Computed example of a mutant assay.
Amino acid sequence: MFGGGGGLDPRKMEQMMKQMGIDVEELDAEEVVIRTADHDLVFTSPDVTKMDARGQETYQIIGSPEQRERADDETDADAASAIPDADVEIVADRTGASEEDARAALETNDGDLAGAVADLE
Rank of each mutant, 00 (worst) to 15 (best):
P46C: 12
K50G: 08
D87F: 08
D78C: 06
P65C: 07
R11G: 11
F43M: 03
D101Y: 05
D38G: 12
E100Q: 11
D76G: 06
L8T: 05
M13G: 02
V88A: 05
E66N: 08
E30G: 15
R54L: 14
D23E: 15
S98E: 08
R54A: 15
N109W: 01
K50W: 12
D38T: 10
G111W: 02
E57Q: 13
G21Y: 01
M20I: 02
V88H: 03
N109Q: 11
D119M: 14
Q15C: 04
T36D: 07
S98G: 12
E66H: 06
P65S: 02
A79N: 00
P65D: 12
A104Y: 00
A118K: 10
P65G: 10
D119V: 00
V33P: 02
I62F: 11
V42N: 02
K12F: 09
V91Q: 04
E14Y: 08
A79E: 01
D47S: 15
T36G: 13
E25R: 14
T75N: 07
Q15H: 09
M20Y: 06
V24T: 09
N109V: 00
A77W: 10
M16C: 07
V48M: 10
I62A: 09
T49M: 12
A80I: 04
L106G: 03
E30T: 15
R103I: 05
L113W: 00
D47V: 15
D73V: 09
I34L: 10
A97E: 07
P46K: 11
Q15F: 10
D93E: 15
S64M: 08
D85K: 13
D93C: 09
D38Q: 13
I90Q: 12
I34P: 04
A71H: 09
R68I: 11
G5P: 09
H39D: 06
G111D: 06
A71R: 12
P46F: 04
A53M: 15
A114Q: 03
H39L: 14
F43D: 04
T75H: 05
A82Q: 15
S45R: 14
A37V: 10
G96T: 03
A37H: 10
R11A: 14
E89A: 08
G5E: 12
Q67K: 07
A29H: 04
K12C: 04
T95I: 06
L27R: 04
V88G: 00
M20D: 12
M13Q: 02
K18H: 14
M20Q: 13
L27M: 11
G6E: 13
G6I: 11
A53P: 00
D119F: 03
D110K: 03
D76T: 11
E74I: 02
G3W: 02
E100Y: 00
M17F: 08
Q60R: 13
F43Y: 07
E69M: 08
I61P: 01
E14I: 13
G3R: 05
T36M: 06
E74R: 02
R35K: 15
A29D: 08
D28F: 12
M16S: 10
D72A: 14
A92P: 13
Q67N: 09
V91R: 00
